[in-house]
């Protein structure tokens, strides 16, 4: 079972993006940071993959490594049949037309000195797509599509807009060159719930309108569930569980997924909420635990978890888990410590 962890990959001729055995490591003074260790996933055209996990799990690093910003330490990233990791910088620059990124901080991701129209037109200008007039028309169309009035906004600078509006402008810029894949790195976690809903709806609209394939990175499981066709849960640089959202959330098989799901605050005072508190701290990525990386905080951990790294294995239709003792099976005899805690009632 401890294998490549690629059981969940689909036939390469159907996939638009295929990431295999991705490894990202950073040398630091304290040693090597194992940010992403052997992650594989793929995307069908038009699919949205949600990448979830706590901060420090390597989900943003994964997103950037797919963009080759910077190039991963190891592994392969194939977009539309072309290997990105072996491209020259010049080729890569051209290929970036087909992949775009939306960042977490909507204000920091727009240049404060440039006008909105210039910001949105920038990718068109870099690639000299269309004449000036055509570019101008395209910018108007894009801004209108994301719900910003081009007449009011074009000549203004980002600081005159709210966070939500800045994120709309970012989205307009990202779809300007009609890319195939968009990587959204926590695009709504800096926004109010009310604005978050607007942006999530907008992303769905844009996906439909421009036929986008998306990687959606977030720490909020409810948000990820809302937008994704497939969800991958990450912990400390590894993938724990992959599956379609409705199935994954109804029947989480990995103890970590289950703990994550239970910690979402429910907007309902009567909800009987059982929070599975995760004991301990996230171990350091400088020296991750042997075997299964979640074992140090896992209530079901056994001997074998320290020795063998579990690979992703199918446990249902399109549902894969990397766990020696998934929740779909009865607990291994002694549950190490009771970490299930009822939320204290008021």
């Amino acid at each position: 079972m401890a294998g490549s962890g690629s059981a969940h990959l689909r036939s390469p001729e159907h996939t638009l993006l295929r990431v295999e055995n991705l490894v990202v490591e950073f040398p630091t003074k304290g040693g090597k940071v194992h940010a992403v260790s052997n992650i594989s996933f793929d995307l069908l055209p038009g699919e949205t993959l949600g990448l979830v996990g706590e901060s420090g799990c390597g989900k943003s690093t994964t997103g950037r490594a797919v963009m080759q910003l910077p190039k991963p330490t190891n592994g392969s990233v194939v977009l539309d049949g072309r290997e990105l990791t072996e491209m020259s910088n010049q080729e890569l620059r051209r290929t970036r037309l087909q992949m775009q990124m939306i960042f977490q901080d909507p204000i920091s991701s727009l240049n404060p000195r440039r006008k909105v129209a210039d910001i949105v037109a920038e990718p068109l200008r870099i690639w000299k797509i269309g004449s000036d007039a055509e570019q101008k028309a395209k910018v108007s169309e894009l801004l209108t599509a994301v719900g910003i009035d081009p007449q009011v906004a074009s000549e203004r600078r980002p600081h005159e807009f709210s966070g939500g509006q800045c994120q709309r402008i970012s989205i307009a810029r990202a779809v300007a060159t009609e890319p195939k894949v968009i990587i959204c790195d926590e695009p709504v976690s800096a926004l109010d719930v009310s604005v978050q809903a607007q942006i999530l709806n907008l992303l769905e609209d844009m996906k439909e309108r421009y036929g986008l394939t998306m990687i959606f990175i977030a720490h909020d499981l409810a948000v990820v569930k809302n937008i994704s066709d497939r969800v991958a849960v990450m912990y400390l640089g590894r993938m724990c569980e992959v599956g379609p959202p409705d199935e994954l959330y109804a029947n989480p098989a990995h103890p970590y997924t289950s703990a994550l799901i239970s910690s979402i605050p429910l907007p309902d005072p009567d909800a009987e909420q059982r929070v599975e508190l995760l004991g301990g701290e996230l171990p350091s990525p400088l020296d991750p635990p042997s075997g299964c990386r979640f074992r140090t905080r896992c209530p079901r951990a056994q001997e074998i978890c320290a020795q063998a790294t579990p690979g992703l294995a199918a446990i249902g239709p399109d549902h894969y888990v990397a766990c020696h003792f998934p929740l779909t099976e009865p607990a291994p005899v002694p549950v190490a410590q009771p970490v299930l805690a009822d939320r204290p009632a008021d």
Binding site: S194, L200, E204, K225, N226, I227, P245, D246, Y249, I264
Partner: peptide, 16 residues
């Protein structure tokens, strides 16, 4: 406006 975990995936949110 809050996405709920019990909503099926791709539920349109009621944004303000």
């Amino acid at each position: 406006a809050i996405p709920r975990i019990e909503m099926p995936s791709h539920t349109r949110l009621d944004a303000i």
